[in-house]
């Protein structure tokens, strides 16, 4: 059970949040111009790595805002939290 620092509400228990998968995959602006393979790449393919991962989370039971976190999946340490649309603070 993590403690997640919501960029709007502050530190809260994980049970107030939901995870929303890999971050920084934006929806193609012109889907109709993509091949089946390109569309499938956007739709289905996700990374699942042991190590530093960029993730989307939403504060479901709080402010209902989406944001990104950087989490090391090998030890669950959350290295950074940042708002939607912002660049990752660390690489």
């Amino acid at each position: 059970m993590f403690i997640i620092h919501c960029p709007y509400c502050g530190e809260r228990e994980q049970s107030e949040f939901k995870a929303g998968g890999e971050a920084h995959i934006s929806r193609p602006k012109q889907p109709s111009e993509l091949s089946d393979d390109q569309w499938a790449e956007y739709l289905f393919m996700r990374k699942n790595i042991k190590g530093v991962q960029y993730e989307r989370w939403v504060h479901t039971h709080g402010c209902r805002k989406w944001f990104n976190i950087i989490r090391d999946t090998s030890n669950d340490q959350i290295q950074a939290v940042y708002k939607m649309g912002e660049k990752p603070p660390i690489k």
């Binding site: 509400c9 530190e11 809260r12 228990e13 049970s15 107030e16 039971h61 709080g62 402010c63």
Partner: peptide, 17 residues
Amino acid sequence: PFNFNKFRNKVGSVTQT
């Protein structure tokens, strides 16, 4: 699961939980 330690001592505090 909310931590009320600070909340309880500050009139006007609001939380959604």
